[in-house]
Design a protein around this nucleic acid. Structure first.
Lengths: 333, 333
DNA sequence: CTGAAAGCGCTTACAG
DNA sequence: CTGAAAGCGCTTACAG
């Protein structure tokens, strides 16, 4: 037999198609003998519900889209996204829902909005990256609910699900740790000026310094890559050669900064203390390993999955989910 | 209107449901005026084919499963898998097919075989890792075609699609490069004894040394992790303190070996030349960056996707796809 | 070239 | 508690 249907199971068990369907759907009010017979023959035949038929009948698709740019996968920088991806995919799997990957960096920009309208997925999780910014508008008026990991710059309509970490408090923690390490001439490598998350981190750092009566050292911008961190560090050293502390708003930038500091003859942490942000793989792979502000990336992915599934099921779900950051002490401080 | 169907489009365009369906399916033999009307109203209504209905009608699911263990995602070691994943997902996307992630490391081991029988996917790509070994039997008798990236140890049935790199030749290239660098006391850190790929790499290396009349130095085993590489390197140095060359069968192990060599006061490459395998992110992130044998991971993923899609479409497809390896010269040789 | 009709496999409201 | 029947939206063989 090709693929057995409910009808095959029903015939084998000697009951009607409706009864077989009821048993397979887990109904309680069915004669025990019939229930047993149906179960037995379903097992025997290797019956598996046809997902297309169930879906067409009005059920859920049983799948959620995971929208992310693919270009960085496989690189060091990609560990950020794969951590979120991992948490999201595991959260969905736990809910018996399939994660469908939707590469955001395709030429055909209509592809994703079209897919969201095809009924193939019950919702989507967007793992925000720079490359995705242009998609925000198109994704926004999706007919299925969306969860954003990372806060989109634009307004994204009514009651979106947004999962992020407490960027401001992360900045506060970084500032405090540098101060407590005795640093007083502290610079910062922040992100692009238009990126809210980076600004919040910088603001937390500034405020914490102010609370201790310390005025912030030089402020320079990077774009979250290793190279931009290196270039930014060179500028910081130029602006204040006596610098004794640096807060880089990503581990990748911290890693680039570390290289420049060492090349310039500044020992880390003896001469200069360095703190990163994210706690991705490169933080532990660096030499010395980086002290950093941890974003709970995997948990953020999982939270997005759980909140989205709840919304798909019609439950009430909070719109904002801000997870705590935590200082991870390693050897660069 | 909720979601427009062909019937809605047909009504708006003033034609029958059959004609509308024909136009939407791209049929040629339809009156131009009707064609234009249908196209226009489909666009106007934002019509999108209901994938469940099409699938039920007998079409393809339009989705392919990507089976991989999730536990390493987000770690440095995970860049190996995400590179393959990237290639595979892009290859599938290019074919207008959705990649569905199937985490292989779930407690419920029946989950994946069950899913493969549900008709939700037209096939699956298995990205092999140690954690997946136990799944091979269950995946093997899948009703849909499977493509393996990496060669399974067991026999996997008739005409499976297997994509791998030329491991033997990679070993040859590593051996030759070390010899050409003037090294004569060359050790190897290979993989687990039961892993065919690692054995092939070691064999290529041994044969190439033999061709040059050089007898292989000490041979030790690791399990592809950084720590196992470090431990293996310590054993190599113990067995031959005069060692001047090392071939590590993965970049992660090479990175661990590098750390031990440097700690032991051996400068790389001045005192000891080191070659890795894979060419993953850690190879460039090391200090010095690693010379390594490149596996075309992304291309392997893409090849698996293309071969599988061709088979799903009923085309004749080669069973074996062995892609070439290439020596990437950096600074550890 | 066009339309009426059947059927993919499922679930459930309805009648008994 | 059980069964006959309808219908989800699509595609295509068939009749015209």
């Amino acid at each position: 037999m090709a693929r057995p249907t409910v009808l095959d199971v029903a015939a084998a068990a000697g009951v009607s198609r409706a009864t077989a369907a009821r048993v397979l759907a887990g109904a309680e009010n069915v004669d025990p003998a019939m229930t047993a017979a149906v179960r037995k023959h379903a097992e025997l035949l290797g019956y598996e519900t046809n997902s297309a038929a169930r879906m067409l009948r009005g059920g859920r698709a049983g799948a959620i889209g995971l929208i992310l740019a693919f270009n960085e996968l496989g690189s060091i920088g990609g560990t950020f996204f794969t951590s979120v991806l991992k948490g999201a995919a595991m959260g969905l799997s736990a809910g018996e829902v399939q994660p469908v990957l939707l590469p955001a960096d395709l030429e055909d920009r209509e592809r994703i909005p079209r897919f969201l309208r095809s009924g193939s997925v019950d919702g989507a999780i967007v793992i925000l990256q720079h490359e995705i910014t242009h998609l925000v508008d198109q994704i926004m008026d999706s007919p299925v609910p969306i969860a954003w990991v990372g806060r989109p710059a634009d307004d994204v309509g009514s009651a979106p699900i947004v999962v992020d970490c407490d960027n401001y408090d992360g900045g506060v923690q970084a500032g405090r740790a540098l101060i407590e390490a005795g640093r007083r001439r502290i610079g910062i490598i922040t992100g692009p000026p238009d990126m809210a998350q980076a600004s919040a981190r910088a603001q937390g750092w500034t405020d914490e310094l102010a609370r201790h009566g310390i005025s912030p050292g030089p402020i320079v911008h990077g774009d979250f890559t290793v190279d931009s961190g290196a270039a930014a560090m060179a500028r910081l050293l130029q602006r204040d050669p006596q610098l004794d502390g640096v807060f880089a708003c990503s581990d990748l930038m911290a890693s680039g900064a570390l290289r420049v500091l060492q090349a310039a003859g500044r020992a880390v942490p003896t001469d200069v203390s360095l703190i990163g942000f994210d706690d991705v793989a490169i933080a532990t792979a660096s030499n010395p390993p980086l002290t950093t502000v941890r974003q709970p990336l995997e948990e953020m992915g999982r939270t997005a999955a759980e909140a989205l599934l709840a919304r798909v099921r019609g439950q009430d779900v909070a719109s904002e989910h801000i997870l705590p950051t935590a200082l991870i002490r390693r050897e660069s401080l």
